[in-house]
C-alpha cells in the first residue's frame, strides 16, 4: 500500500435544529458525526459500515466537500481541505469522485452517455472536444462497455450498465479516490457480483482508493481492506476486514454480523439479537451511545464515553470491555 491519501482527524458535523419559520430559534443539534478519525491509503478500500442515521453518508459528503465539518479537519496528501483554494481545490475535486446508489437518479436522462462521462473532463480538466471523446471511449472500455454507447441515453441501459456508466464518469478524470455510496444496493444479485468484480479490477489496474459507504456487511467484506463500523455518529470499531469478520470485538459489530449471517431457522436462539432501536441523534444517551441496546452493558457504560483505543495492531475498539 502507498502512503496515506486521505485522513480525517477528529472530524465532527453537527446540524442545527430550528423551530418556526421566521423567528425560529435554535432548539438543538443533531450530532451526525462525532469525533471521527480514519485514513485511506493509496490503492486501499476503507469500508464505512453502519445502519441508517449512523453518520456514514455525512462523512462521505464531507470528503466530497458537500458539507463542511463543524470540528476537526480532513487532509488530502497532508493538506487540509479547509485551507485548499484555487488550483489545489480544483485538483482535489477532479481526483476525488463519487458513485451513488441509484444510477437512475445520478445520471441526467437528457444527456447522452458521452456527455455525461465527458462532463467532468470539460469542467475540471478543460480538455478540448476531441481529447474528451477519446478519453470517454477509453473509460467506457475500462468498465467493459462499448465505445459506441456514448451516443445513447441512460434509459437505454439496464441498471448494471447504468452503474458502469456512473463508474466511467468517476474514472474519467484519472481520479485517485472514489467515494462509493451503496454502489450495488439497487442492483440484482447476479448483476451485483459483476459490479463488485469490476470495482476490484479497476482498483488493481489503476491503483484506486475507495471509500465504501454501505449498510451491507457482505458487500463490505468482499470489497474492503479495512472496515470502520459507525454507530450514532461515532466509529465504534475499526480493523482489517478479515480480522473484523473473523472476530468482531464490539458488541454492536457482533450483533450486526450475526444479523447478516444466513442462519437456519431454529438455530437463532444462540444468536445475538439486539433489542430496541437507534436512539435519537438529537438526544444521544449518556456514556456509550450503544449502552441502552447492549446486552453486555455495565454500570460504567452509562456514564463514561469509551474512547476508540488500539487494542491490537491495526485494531481499534470503543468499548469498556476492552
Amino acid at each position: 500500500m502507498s502512503p496515506t491519501l486521505l485522513e480525517a482527524r477528529n472530524v465532527s458535523k453537527r446540524f442545527p435544529v430550528t423551530k418556526g419559520l421566521i423567528l425560529g430559534g435554535n432548539v438543538g443539534w443533531i450530532h451526525a458525526v462525532e469525533d471521527v478519525s480514519f485514513h485511506i491509503d493509496g490503492g486501499e478500500t476503507l469500508g464505512l459500515v453502519g445502519e441508517s442515521g449512523c453518520g456514514k453518508s455525512t462523512t462521505a459528503r464531507m470528503v466530497l466537500l458537500l458539507e463542511r465539518p463543524t470540528g476537526g479537519e480532513m487532509l488530502y496528501e497532508g493538506v487540509s481541505l479547509q485551507e485548499m483554494s484555487g488550483a489545489d481545490l480544483q485538483r482535489y475535486r477532479s481526483t476525488v469522485q463519487a458513485v451513488f446508489q441509484d444510477p437512475q437518479s445520478s445520471l441526467n436522462p437528457r444527456m447522452r452517455v458521452g456527455d455525461i462521462v465527458g462532463e467532468p473532463l470539460e469542467v475540471n480538466a478543460g480538455l478540448p472536444r476531441r481529447a474528451v471523446r477519446e478519453r470517454v471511449a477509453e473509460v467506457l472500455k475500462d468498465v467493459n462497455l462499448d465505445a459506441a454507447f456514448a451516443q445513447l441515453y441512460p434509459h437505454e441501459f439496464s441498471g448494471g450498465q447504468r452503474q458502469r456508466i456512473a463508474l466511467a464518469r468517476a474514472l474519467a478524470t484519472h481520479s485517485r479516490l472514489i467515494v462509493l455510496d451503496e454502489p450495488v444496493a439497487s442492483l440484482d444479485a447476479s448483476i451485483r457480483s459483476q459490479i463488485i468484480n469490476l470495482l476490484k479490477d479497476l482498483q488493481d489496474q489503476h491503483g484506486l482508493s475507495y471509500l465504501l459507504i454501505t449498510h451491507d456487511l457482505a458487500v463490505s467484506r468482499h470489497l474492503s481492506h479495512r472496515v470502520a463500523v459507525m454507530y450514532l455518529g461515532r466509529i465504534v470499531e475499526e480493523a482489517k476486514a478479515d480480522a473484523l469478520y473473523a472476530e468482531p470485538l464490539h458488541p454492536y459489530t457482533k450483533a450486526l454480523i450475526a444479523a447478516a449471517l444466513p442462519i437456519r431457522a431454529g438455530q437463532e436462539s444462540d444468536e445475538m439479537v439486539v433489542a430496541g432501536e437507534v436512539p435519537n441523534p438529537m438526544d444521544p444517551p449518556s456514556g456509550c451511545g450503544f449502552h441502552p441496546r447492549c446486552p453486555l452493558a455495565m454500570p460504567r457504560c452509562t456514564e463514561d464515553e469509551p474512547a476508540l483505543r488500539e487494542v491490537a495492531p491495526e485494531r481499534r475498539v470503543a468499548c469498556h470491555l476492552f
Binding site: A189, S190, R192, S193, Q194, I196, N197, K200, D216, L217, A218, V219, R221, H222, D242, Y245, I257, A260, L261, P262
Partner: peptide
Amino acid sequence: SVPRMDRKVHRFAS
C-alpha cells in the same frame, strides 16, 4: 455470485 458473510472469495463467479 451473492456476496455472503460466511465466506470470502477473491472473485465472484458471476
